[in-house]
């Protein structure tokens, strides 16, 4: 087995330690940035839904500001956003390199998309349920977490798996400019040294990672759909 692997992917076998570290870094970046963006996405997505016209906490000013801000951030390509955010990243994280330096741009790159996903998910909740909850004397906060959030768990899970998969793509891009992770590995060890097997193995690992996330998402959806 080892012989075959050594023959098939000699460079990967030589750099196994680095590959392992790279996988870990990708998982760290995805995990941390994903968690922060999920929290912010829930916050902004929910705010959009409740402050829009006819929403339970209708507020034209907040809605318009948030809506435009998300549009602006979404229209900047991630690679440009990375450079734009360099000073802010250094200010917040103390460095623009490695996993630590990647979190800020990843959060900026993911949160607007995440917010739209959450907005779409919550918009799928039947207005009648909101009215029923109001008629039962629920407060706005109760309506948010007992109706909007609870009743759209499947849609939120779907949006989350899409966003996390996107985020993995962004970590690879960040990796190419110094953030570490699988992107960095494929670029430095694969592309620059012309070790094609390093690139292919990276691709296979990314495919497995995406499949795993989609699987988890599907399980959550299935468990919460009746």
């Amino acid at each position: 087995m080892q012989d075959i692997l050594l023959k098939l992917i000699p460079n990967v076998m030589k750099d196994l330690n680095i590959l392992g570290r790279s996988i870990l870094e990708t998982l760290q970046m995805t995990g941390r940035a994903g968690l922060i963006s999920f929290i912010l996405g829930m916050l902004f997505g929910t705010t959009l839904v409740v402050t829009r016209r006819g929403g339970i906490l209708e507020n034209r000013v907040i809605y318009e500001i948030l809506d435009k801000l998300i549009n602006i951030l979404r229209s900047i390509p991630f690679i440009i956003l990375l450079f734009c955010l360099l000073p802010l990243t250094r200010f917040i994280s103390g460095t623009a390199l490695g996993v630590k330096g990647a979190i800020v741009p990843l959060v900026f790159g993911t949160t607007p998309f995440f917010s739209r996903q959450i907005e779409a998910a919550l918009s799928g909740v039947d207005e009648g349920l909101i009215e029923a909850a109001q008629s039962m004397g629920n407060s706005s906060w109760e309506i948010i977490y007992r109706v909007y959030w609870r009743e759209s768990i499947p849609a939120i899970a779907r949006g989350t798996s899409i966003t996390i998969i996107n985020l993995i793509g962004l970590t690879a891009m960040a990796g190419a400019v110094g953030a570490g992770g699988l992107g960095n590995f494929a670029y430095i060890y694969g592309q620059q040294r012309n070790h094609l097997d390093d690139i292919y193995v990276t691709v296979i690992i990314l495919i497995l990672l995406v499949m795993l996330i989609q699987l988890i998402g599907n399980i959550v959806v299935k468990h919460n759909t009746h």
């Binding site: 039947d126 009648g128 009215e131 029923a132 109001q134 008629s135 039962m136 004397g137 009743e151 009746h226």
Partner: peptide
């Protein structure tokens, strides 16, 4: 609190599907 003492039902029931 007052609404809790006023029940309401609807044409399309509006039960929570989950």
């Amino acid at each position: 609190e007052a609404r809790k003492k006023i029940g309401m039902i609807f044409q399309h029931f509006h039960l929570m599907p989950s």
